[in-house]
């Protein structure tokens, strides 16, 4: 696949991911939980009865703040989904024209939005999904960061993903011509 075709495929996939992936955040008071898509569409707003006692203005403010964080979480998950399938280089290309993912833009030391916190790993209320779809993964905000980057160093959140398992060890290469002609495929059998 050419570079141009890969970019087109990435754009197509990104559109699908953005419409499918959701993020969930809970207000630090625990009174409001919002699930939203990566384009900010609210999928669910759960209010505890005690939230209503805070007054209408406070409820509106809590919903707005929590919705913003839920959207950021969904955007982050979208980046991870794209990077997982198409590779880091394609995710970086998307980042170049779509902007950095929210958690990257905030930086590792930036505190979250006041009064809000992402829902702990995958405790999101399961939004209705199309059959056969896989559940969205939690955003990497909930994953431990290996180590803080050096000042000025550009980091990619997907770089923090756990390394792939080690490849199966290959048998030692032998340069004995007689052995090779006796069994030319011995090193490729499993």
């Amino acid at each position: 696949m050419s570079s141009q075709e890969e970019r087109i495929a990435a754009a197509d996939r990104l559109t699908g991911v953005l419409s499918r992936v959701t993020g969930t955040a809970t207000h630090h008071t625990g009174l409001v939980t919002v699930t939203a898509s990566a384009v900010g569409a609210l999928k669910s707003v759960r209010l505890l009865p005690a939230a209503l006692g805070r007054g209408p203005d406070a409820v509106g403010r809590m919903v707005t703040e929590t919705a913003r964080l839920a959207t950021d979480s969904a955007v982050q998950t979208s980046y991870n989904e794209v990077a997982k399938t198409l590779g880091d280089s394609m995710a970086m290309a998307i980042e170049d024209f779509a902007g950095p993912p929210p958690l990257h833009a905030q930086g590792p030391g930036t505190p979250p939005l006041p009064g809000t916190s992402p829902a702990p790993g995958g405790s999101a209320p399961a939004p209705p999904r199309a059959p056969g779809r896989t559940a969205p993964r939690p955003a990497p905000a909930h994953r431990p960061t290996p180590e803080p980057p050096a000042p000025g160093q550009v980091t990619r959140p997907w770089s923090a993903q756990p390394p792939k398992p080690a490849q199966r060890p290959r048998p030692p290469v032998e340069d004995d011509d007689d052995d090779f002609f006796a069994d030319p495929f011995r090193g490729q059998r499993r």
């Binding site: 009865p49 409820v59 707005t64």
Partner: peptide
């Protein structure tokens, strides 16, 4: 996402 959510006092009677 929503930039502003305004709720009237009467809306609180709807229940959470």
């Amino acid at each position: 996402p929503p930039q502003e959510v305004r709720i009237s006092p009467a809306a609180l009677n709807m229940g959470a």
